[in-house]
Write a protein that binds this DNA or RNA. Structure first.
Lengths: 180, 180
DNA sequence: GTCTATATGCGGATAGAC
DNA sequence: GTCTATCCGCATATAGAC
């Protein structure tokens, strides 16, 4: 983390993320972002070809990293569910600011054509725990476990990291365990 | 359900809900809605004083009904958790189209100043199960249980109603039970 | 890589006639 | 209750100079 002077491109992403999170994507104009940085709109267009391009550049690395997480666990044999849940928690906790953005404005996933990737990601997570053809009961429990870990990260942001991690993962293991 | 010819006001709400759900609130202009109904924008303004007013008119009854559900269970002594969860499921299942709208665009709750009501609602639900000062572990489990029921309704829309109800409520009881 | 200047269009909203 | 006409503002986006 050298934190050398960030490039203009990176500064734009930083400020955009902060403003998107605070006042919403749609309500944040490129003008706003440019003003905040002391540059002009055309300068912004030099770095990002459109508004969606900017949003994509912020969200895509997240999707990428999530996919890698799943791929890593898919290669394990056997799958260790508790470690999967822990990694899943850490991923969400680490990126909770960006995730808050995505989840309070889920629609943007569709707008940047990433909705399919997100759905596929969910499907593969369930597959890791219950195989490719889960029963309805198993599907419900998987939704509750993974969704719940996500929600814990976002709804209890002030809780101490390690205690929250234990609480969330334990709760998830409880739901999953009763159907294993 | 007389389904007499709906008033223009009701037809606007119907069409708006359908378009909001399909293409998003922000991307649906009053012009779009008016065109679809074969009327003009000013005609729309006769029925709703602003765009937010229209959104509010669609979402508010939902919030209202949710509050009534919580209030009803708050008056019970003792609280019967399984029945609370069943009512909670039925509420979400019945209104899943509108809820999909709200949850894929959570930001709109802030825009119509209903975010506080929504947060308070969650807080009271947790209180019904674990009292006013839940531990972190209990809070995590409550988030997982209530959030999970919600997610099941929205993510498994094709599942048979009764089987889904049983699966979701059972799973929720499992998480809550282990901390009761 | 950043600027000035500007084109263009759409969205919300209102006035006032029918 | 619905229309025509219109205002205003802002957003996206481009051209071309420095």
């Amino acid at each position: 983390m050298a934190r050398s002077t960030p490039s203009t491109r990176e500064r734009i992403q930083e400020v955009a993320l902060e403003m998107f999170a605070r006042q919403g994507v749609q309500r944040t104009s490129l003008q706003d972002i440019a003003n905040r940085l002391g540059i002009t709109k055309p300068a912004l267009y030099y770095h990002f070809s459109s508004r969606d391009d900017l949003v994509r550049s912020i969200v895509n690395p997240l999707i990428q990293e999530g996919e890698e997480l799943v791929a890593r666990h898919e290669q394990r044999d056997p799958v260790v569910v508790s470690e999967l849940l822990e990694d899943y928690f850490d991923f969400h906790y680490r990126h909770r600011e960006k995730l808050m953005l995505v989840l309070t404005e889920l629609r943007i996933l569709g707008e940047i054509e990433s909705i399919d990737a997100a759905l596929d990601w969910r499907r593969r997570l369930v597959g890791l725990v219950f195989g490719p053809e889960p029963t309805l009961d198993q599907a419900a429990r998987a939704i509750m476990a993974f969704g719940g870990i996500q929600d814990c990260c976002l709804q209890l942001p002030d809780a101490p990291h390690q205690r929250l991690r234990t609480a969330a993962v334990d709760a998830a293991l409880t739901v999953l365990g009763a159907a294993a």
